[in-house]
Amino acid sequence: MSAITRRVLPYPLLSVFLLIMWLLLNQSLSPGHLILGSIIGVAGGLATSSLQIPSGRVRNLHLLVQFAFIVLYDIIRSNIAVSRIVLTPGRVAKSGFLTVKLDIRNEYALAILACVVTSTPGTVWVNFDSAKGELLLHVLDLVDEDEWTDLIKNRYERLLKEIFE
């Protein structure tokens, strides 16, 4: 049974996500749309399986939700910080590049970290050197390097490590 399930639904999360997207797009929960959305979900999963994406697993869903709230809070906080930098007349932000040494190697954890770092105003992910494990960032308000390193290492990386590894 489980072998067949794995055959039909190689990426169950992706399939469920596609079904939810279909229902949202049509604003409906009618049986017809449920069936059509399920077909799209299964087809999408099968089409993706030929790409041979490395499988990842969320080990701790509770922590993932906590991580999402932390990120939301940080986005609000850095929105305020960046607004202040832009609106203060005559202020020139001391921006610069910053290198942080990372311990995580899981692709999904790194991808989430990249999205979080880039979509938080004030920091942009530039490059990750997987051989050396060094992450290159650009920071808008680079007054205290240790503060930013601490943010990446202790606030994000530690949680992501627990979630994915």
Binding site: V82, T120, P121, H138
Partner: peptide, 19 residues
């Protein structure tokens, strides 16, 4: 418009795309 180099200018538009 205000910030003075490209790498600094990458940051502010993310205000619009997030909050």
């Amino acid at each position: 418009v205000r910030l003075n180099n490209f790498y600094s200018r990458v940051h502010p538009p993310t205000l619009g795309t997030t909050l």
